[in-house]
């Protein structure tokens, strides 16, 4: 439960986001998305979409994030230790993907991503019948990734400050706000934390949709099959 932000705001974020996912599911259950864009270059073999380091990072991050949340608030030190582990994983991720794979540009939103998102939005609202092929990362995924960077930074700063200077869990509840500084790190931590939980639920939802199973398999086993890639994706943008 939130300790700084009003419950209505914190839980409201989860409710609104879940409501959107429920509406999305209903819509796509009655009208599935069918790709209308012709394939450009066809793949002749299976493609490695995620290497071992990327997959290991992804699943290790999943486990650590679950533990970060399940450990809180009873075990603040455990929460802090897992948060530190998460920071370590992020260092590995940045070093590998940006330093080794030179893949920073893949996560940066482009104009084409906005066009695709607009067309998908129109299709969702029955304004257009066309539906674009998917890239490895679409606009939502790229924005989610940008939010993760901002969110982790904000959560780290507010979390470290609380741990060192405003440990409200060490005082009786009605004294929380007497040790809280004017910039309200607890409130900021709560709002960013609950937004992160909402987006992670969205991430899990979209990952488990049948339409995205090829990418989910690729995140598990590394490869995406030639047939799947040619059917729904832009093969050039899967690598």
């Amino acid at each position: 439960m939130p300790h700084g932000a009003p419950e209505l705001v914190a839980y409201g974020i989860l409710v609104l986001f879940s409501a959107f996912l429920i509406v999305h599911w209903m819509r796509r259950a009655t009208r599935p998305a069918s790709v209308t864009e012709p394939v450009g270059r066809e793949l002749t073999g299976d493609l490695t979409a995620f290497d071992k380091v990327q997959r290991l990072f992804h699943w290790a991050t999943t486990v650590v994030l679950i533990l970060v949340h399940s450990a809180f608030p009873s075990w603040v030190l455990v929460h802090v230790i897992f948060s530190g582990l998460l920071a370590g994983l992020l260092v590995v991720h940045v070093t590998w993907d940006v330093g080794k794979l030179r893949a920073f540009h893949r996560m940066w939103p482009r104009l084409q991503d906005a066009r695709d998102a607009l067309l998908r939005g129109k299709n969702f609202l029955s304004i257009a019948k066309q539906y674009p092929r998917m890239s490895k990362y679409d606009l939502f995924m790229k924005n989610f990734h940008i939010y993760l960077i901002i969110s982790f930074a904000v959560l780290a700063v507010t979390g470290i400050y609380q741990y060192l200077y405003a440990p409200w869990w060490t005082v009786i509840w009605f004294l929380h706000y007497q040790i809280e500084p004017a910039w309200r790190p607890t409130v900021i931590h709560d709002i960013f934390g609950f937004s992160l939980i909402a987006l992670l639920i969205g991430h899990v939802y979209f990952a488990f949709l049948k339409i995205n199973w090829p990418l989910l398999k690729a995140m598990t086993f590394g490869k995406i099959s030639r047939d799947e890639a040619n059917r729904r994706y832009r093969p050039d943008e899967l690598e």
């Binding site: 009003p6 989860l14 409710v15």
Partner: peptide, 21 residues
């Protein structure tokens, strides 16, 4: 602060919504 959304406890509504998802 208010903790109810649409007449239902906001935490219950949040967890129920996530469960539905």
């Amino acid at each position: 602060q208010p903790i109810r959304l649409f007449g239902i406890d906001s935490s219950a509504l949040a967890f129920d919504s996530i469960a539905i998802v």
